[in-house]
């Protein structure tokens, strides 16, 4: 129950105050839903990805991309087909398969989805979970609620880690390993994944009472105010970082707003 998504580093993003980083994250997420030009939206997406590559590395950014790849594939496959009024781009006999409007809508939705995903991922990957909790509490979230958020963020990668360990284990136990690799159908591939998924589920479910047991055994539930090992300093630096966090989306709005 221990891993989190934080990737250690020393870049600018790591030095940015977590409270300001959370604010910037929320404002940028909102910004993607404002009426901004499509080119502007994609430029910002590229900017976020570039900042991510510089901070947490290309590999980590690529892994984030891989997690959303299936969703992007669904978007590309189904959204254009759903918007068939407008200037036709792809026609099969009497059926309009894709239109210019459908394509633009797909690109718009994809920019929002990719943008929001990378902004959130980058925030979480460049900020220790303890500091995210403190920032959330600074914004007024009760301790228990911030703990739930923190545990939720840790639980997802825990399952991912367990999945990977279990997959390795089954790789060693499976006598048909790599047999027919590349020739298997989806049903067969899914069938092969079933034991791993089942094990990951068992490990995850076992972790739930262990987590509760451990929390209570470490005094979670005691009456009285909890103290905090980590603190977030309040200084001019915080003011500057909050100002930068506010100004970035505002500047982007002035640059790319549709007028």
């Amino acid at each position: 129950m221990t891993t989190d998504t934080y990737v250690a580093g020393t870049g600018v993003l790591y030095r940015f105050d977590p409270r300001a980083k959370l604010l910037l994250m929320v404002l940028l997420c909102i910004w993607f839903f404002l009426p901004v030009s499509l080119a502007g939206a994609w430029l910002v997406v590229l900017g976020v990805i570039a900042a991510g590559v510089l901070s947490v590395g290309l590999r980590r950014m690529f892994r984030t991309f891989l997690t959303i790849l299936p969703m992007l594939a669904f978007m590309i496959l189904f959204i254009p087909f759903n918007v068939r009024s407008g200037e036709p781009l792809l026609v099969a006999g009497p059926v309009v398969l894709a239109t210019r409007e459908g394509l633009l809508q797909t690109l718009r939705l994809m920019s929002r989805f990719v943008g929001v995903t990378f902004v959130c991922a980058l925030t979480i990957q460049s900020t220790p979970m303890g500091k995210i909790m403190l920032a959330l509490r600074w914004y007024g979230l009760p301790y228990k609620a911030s703990l739930v958020v923190s545990l939720a963020f840790r639980f997802i990668p825990f399952i991912a880690d367990s999945f990977s360990q279990i997959k390795d284990s089954h790789r060693l136990r499976d006598p048909n390993i790599d047999e027919g690799k590349g020739r298997k159908g989806y049903r067969s591939k899914l069938g092969d994944m079933l034991p791993t998924l089942t094990s990951a589920l068992v490990v995850s479910l076992r972790a739930v009472p262990s987590l509760a047991m451990s929390l209570e055994h470490r005094g979670f539930g005691l009456p009285g105010k909890r103290t905090s090992y980590h603190v977030l300093e309040t200084s001019w630096r915080l003011f500057t970082d909050l100002f930068i966090s506010t100004m970035i989306p505002v500047a982007l709005w002035f640059l790319f707003a549709v007028r």
Binding site: M1, T2, T3, Y6, G130, S150, R154, A207, S210, H230
Partner: peptide, 13 residues
């Protein structure tokens, strides 16, 4: 031990 660990880092634990 893995069952019992809850915090993101050793010092937090």
């Amino acid at each position: 031990p893995l069952d019992e660990l809850i915090a993101p880092t050793c010092e937090d634990e």
